[in-house]
């Protein structure tokens, strides 16, 4: 019996490790961001270099209580939450990376193919028109998706962690090369802040594309693993209505 062409083909999209670590990461990053804003509020000024040049700070104001953990001003409590979730984030990230390296997720699913890279222009044009791959092409991530995930997983999050560690006087004594890598401790703090903003931007773009390319299908695939390939659309237009 052949499958009804309009019903879609279910596939198993995400491994259990990817699903579990993804959602743990969501909780970690949310709490790290909110407790991080609490810590930032204790001295809401940024500097470049090794030290604080108090006469010429970059300021961006303070963050409101509804964005911080805890909601009242408490640097001590903010730090406790931050380090608790920093450890969970590190362990979770290590599990994800180890499983992805050993299981081949990184090479198989995240590195773009030569052919994908060649047609990156087309993929950008399709994204701009909010058209996302369907049918067989949706078996794998599209090239922009792959590059975005790789950037977050291999660059943004690891550098975020290193910039955070560079603020620790003990870590700086143990690894004297770390702070100069960022151009000074205050630069590391500023980079930590900028990367937090980039992660928020990634989050917004990620959630927007998840919604636009099929909210329930995407969400279900990250929860149960099950993803349904939607039939390809020959007319080259998105169905309306």
């Amino acid at each position: 019996m052949s499958r009804d062409a309009t019903a879609g083909i279910p596939i198993h999209r995400h491994s259990a490790v990817v699903r579990v670590t993804h959602w743990i990461n969501v909780v970690c990053l949310a709490l790290l961001l909110m407790s991080g804003l609490q810590i930032f509020n204790a001295h809401p000024a940024l500097y470049w270099g090794e030290i604080s040049h108090f006469e010429s700070p970059f300021t961006v104001g303070e963050f409101p209580g509804w964005l911080t953990v805890p909601s009242y001003q408490s640097l001590a409590t903010g730090r406790h939450w931050h380090f608790l979730f920093a450890w969970i984030f590190v362990i979770n990230g290590a599990v994800y990376l180890a499983a992805s390296l050993l299981g081949g997720h990184l090479w198989r699913d995240l590195f773009p193919t030569r052919e994908q890279l060649r047609y990156i222009g087309r993929s950008i044009a399709e994204h701009v028109r909010l058209r996302f791959p369907k049918g067989e092409e949706a078996r794998r991530y599209n090239v922009l998706q792959k590059l975005a995930y790789l950037a977050v997983v291999l660059v943004l999050l690891p550098v975020m962690l290193l910039a955070g560690l560079a603020m620790s006087p003990a870590i700086d004594a143990a690894f004297p090369w770390l702070v100069p890598l960022f151009g000074g401790r205050q630069s590391a703090r500023t980079i930590h802040f900028i990367l937090a903003n980039l992660l928020v931007l990634f989050f917004l773009a990620h959630v927007a594309t998840v919604i636009l390319s099929g909210l329930w299908n995407n969400l279900r695939s990250m929860i149960t693993g099950r993803y349904v390939l939607e039939p390809e659309d020959d007319r080259g237009e998105r169905p309306t209505g």
């Binding site: 930032f40 108090f54 205050q186």
Partner: peptide, 12 residues
């Protein structure tokens, strides 16, 4: 040496 305050600033 560099003095790092818990608030986030540093001086040498």
């Amino acid at each position: 040496t560099r003095h790092d305050c818990v608030e986030g600033w540093s001086c040498i």
